[in-house]
Amino acid sequence: MGETNQNLYSGSFNIEGGNFNSAGIVSTNIKSILKKLGIPGDIVRKAAIVSYEAEINVVSYAKKAVVTLTVNPGVVHIEVIDEGQGIPNIDLAMQEGWSTADQRIREMGFGAGMGLCNIKNYSDEFHISSEVGRGTHLKMTIQTP
């Protein structure tokens, strides 16, 4: 759909679950890659929000994840595939304010039940699927001019 096959960037990153000290490294990385490619600032910031929220979800709830960034003319794809507990009820998880975060996570200011909402709101296309006991798969697409 207007997306050509000419690939501008393709790469993947690992996130380790449970490690709040390194949270944000992958999204910071993604942000600087997009900047270097000359992607406009507002698109870069959208991608930064989306990838940060996804990263925090992995750190909070999963064992590990692989994030794949693909940039083609006109579009940025971010895909996050985690191994973890999965989400039993996606509709519920998508409700703003709903969270299963424990006290430790909430004390840091995470677990407000806004992460998936932010991802949805700042993506042009968003797909989520999950299997309890296996993990969660997020696909985000952001259009570029």
Binding site: F20, N21, A23, G24, S27, T28, G41, R45, I49, Y52, E53, I56, M108, G109, F110, A112, M114, G115, C117, N118, N121, Y122
Partner: peptide
């Protein structure tokens, strides 16, 4: 103090007022 709230609703160039002190505020 809710990082996702700040992430979703603040803008570039803003000064952020918070009581969170841990290193994740720098990433945001």
């Amino acid at each position: 103090d809710l990082l996702s709230d700040v992430m979703g609703n603040s803008r570039e160039g803003y000064i952020w007022i918070t009581r969170q002190v841990h290193q994740n505020i720098v990433a945001v």
